[in-house]
Design a protein around this nucleic acid. Structure first.
Lengths: 168, 168
DNA sequence: TATTGTTATACTCTATAACTATA
DNA sequence: TATAGTTATAGAGTATAACAATA
């Protein structure tokens, strides 16, 4: 339909269709849009989802630890955690050794919430995987993104079952 | 180093390491961080880069057309375009036929700016491609992202030279 | 009446500095 | 002195409604 203008061909201008950052941003917005629709009933934002997932996976971590894993400034984490605490999903406990720190835990209600959340999450992920054309492409994408991200995001000890795409 | 907690293994909680949206967001932030460092000298943001690239590729498009291609609300596009116009890089011209609309063009200064911008952009992209492990992985990633994005982003008539990953 | 560009506004996300209480 | 959490605040980015000029 749309044809590249002569001026663009001649001067080899930046094409957004080849700009990795631009494509990543659009893809992320698309996935987050699906996330918002999926989790509208639970009134859960991506960041809140991530916080609950991290607390559930390893309870007792300090606020700053959770915040750092998500690249959230500790100042901005406060309101986020206030919200989860006000909803009765998670709680802060005074550290016994270091009484400055708060260790984070799920409440019982939070545990049940995470179970529901996990169900919805599987549907959401399945939808994205389908859009990507299947598990194989999905794993390929994650491997490529991990390669791009480098060593910064191996928190949960992800075991690659197949050779990463980067090794070729 | 870090080991997955027993609770996470037993209940199969959401692992952020397998959450596509989460990885896409982190990857996008990493690429945009490099973008910011690369274009700090030109005081150019990703969105401004995209607008200039679109105007340069096909001059004369209306504000709303450019805005829509970038998923920017036309109300928010005004200040953005004001900025580019105040810097003398681009200009609005009253449409001859439809005098409500403004067609967008680069100034001569804007043309020169886009040339410099393009140089920096190549360095930026090359850095990302290197981080990804080479051209092959880069093309693979773009194909996967295009598959995810579907038909929404084929504005510049990107010609896939090899079979898309999605076809397997 | 509908559309283009615009203004005003509000809400979210993010970033920084400074405070408090503990260490 | 340094650190964990907090508060306040400012700056982006984004969303909606309403208006003027034009179709």
């Amino acid at each position: 339909m749309t044809v590249l203008s002569r001026s663009a061909m001649e001067k080899s201008l930046p094409l957004l269709s080849t700009a990795i950052g631009h494509k990543l941003r659009r893809a992320q917005l698309l996935v987050f849009q699906d996330f918002h629709e999926t989790f509208a009933s639970l009134k859960l934002r991506p960041t809140e989802f991530a916080v609950l997932a991290l607390i559930a996976t390893r309870p007792g971590q300090k606020q700053t630890e959770i915040a750092e894993q998500l690249s959230i400034k500790r100042a901005n984490f406060v309101a986020l955690m206030d919200c989860l605490e006000n909803r009765g999903l998670a709680e802060r406990r005074k550290g016994d050794i270091d009484r400055r720190s708060h260790s984070l835990h799920l409440t019982e209600k939070g545990e049940r919430f995470v179970e529901k959340m996990t169900q919805l999450w599987r549907h959401h992920e399945a939808r994205i995987v389908r859009r990507l054309g299947g598990e194989r492409n999905s794993e390929l994408l994650i491997d490529l993104l991990d390669t791009l991200l480098g060593s910064e995001s191996n928190i949960e000890a992800h075991q690659p079952e197949k050779q990463a795409a980067a090794s070729s």
